[in-house]
Nucleic acid binder design. Structure first.
Lengths: 141, 141
DNA sequence: TTTAATGCAAAACCTTTGCACATCA
DNA sequence: TGATGTGCAAAGGTTTTGCATTAAA
């Protein structure tokens, strides 16, 4: 991913592409798991970016409202975010090592339909996360 | 539900049944939606119970560890809990009025199986919550 | 020039913790 | 008595906010 595509991506989501926002977006593009605000802030500091924590949190809210990232909660007392890469999916959260894997896709469209039919509730999005023990931790026991 | 059955319930979960814990349990039994610690605390104060906030939060952790309640997160910056009434289920969270309904049951056992087969991840529990607009709010628009 | 983004400092909010005292087994 | 629960006060961690300054459209 070049800086150019990041620039275009922000514009597509109607987010003004500043240097800080491009940097934050880049952190998410490099990430292998959803990140919380404090972690994003620390990564940027380590990269030598002079940025304020408040800016990071404000930007995450901006990204969220724009639909660029999705908030996730894994029972940690904080909110993580992940890039909205088009393909909606779910997570496997290992309660031993803390690793978070993504499932390839979501198979709940039928469920959304039947909920609407039966309850009148119109679900615009959903979250499905599995908590348990990952393959690696299972072997180690 | 009598006070007696609450007493027995706590013992069954190996939780020492004190007056405060019975009161907190009773709040959950009367609740129609999952509750966060601060709300439980305020309900108890309104009922005239002299209890400390720390005791409420400590008790919720105790209940959670004992398996008596389940923690839930709905993107609110706080944790809600609901009584573990045996029947595992999911939620419909209205993003307009904030109401939370429960679905009758869960149909994801097959998915848990296929995840284990395909990824080796052993899911001991999961969370599935739908966010959108409830029937009432849809009509009002 | 007019609007939006940022840094700084402070605060808000939810939650946890240390310690002394009270209560239960 | 010995272990556990509780109140009080303080602090921890995450996130938000007001305001002056800076940068962008």
């Amino acid at each position: 991913m070049t800086a150019d595509t990041s620039h275009i991506l922000l514009k597509r989501y109607s987010v003004q592409p500043t240097a800080h926002r491009l940097a934050i977006l880049s952190v998410f593009r490099d990430a292998t798991a959803p990140l919380d605000g404090q972690t994003v802030y620390e990564i940027l500091l380590r990269q030598g970016a002079g940025i304020d924590r408040a800016t990071v949190f404000r930007t995450l809210k901006t990204f969220e409202r724009a639909g660029l990232v999705q908030p996730l909660e894994f029972n940690e007392g904080k909110v993580r975010f992940e890039l909205n890469r088009g393909m909606h999916h779910h997570h496997l959260v290992c309660t031993e090592c803390g690793s978070i894997q993504c499932l390839k896709q979501c198979e709940l469209d039928g469920m959304v339909e039947s909920i609407k039919r039966e309850t009148g509730f119109s679900a615009s999005f959903h979250r499905l996360d599995f908590f348990g023990t990952c393959a690696k931790c299972r072997k180690e026991e």
